[in-house]
Amino acid sequence: MKTLFDCHKACIVKVIKLNTKGDLKQRLISFGIMKEALLEVLEHSPGKSTIEVKVGKMNIALRAKEAQMIEVEKI
């Protein structure tokens, strides 16, 4: 299983599943991170502790732990 956390910079992936529930899932969805959405990894902060991704026209920052909950596939 590949998650967003495993992706390198500049790689474009498609979301397959959100392995979380409740508030966090709602939060991700409200930012447009939902099934079928395309994500582009823009930047990692030092130590890969946070990740910046592009969803549509919006840039979102995520922590490594949350990125590991997002199952993706390469396109």
Binding site: L28, I60, A61, K65, E66
Partner: peptide, 9 residues
């Protein structure tokens, strides 16, 4: 437990 970090840039 920690709060998740998901924010718009």
């Amino acid at each position: 437990v920690d709060e998740p970090f998901v924010m718009e840039m």
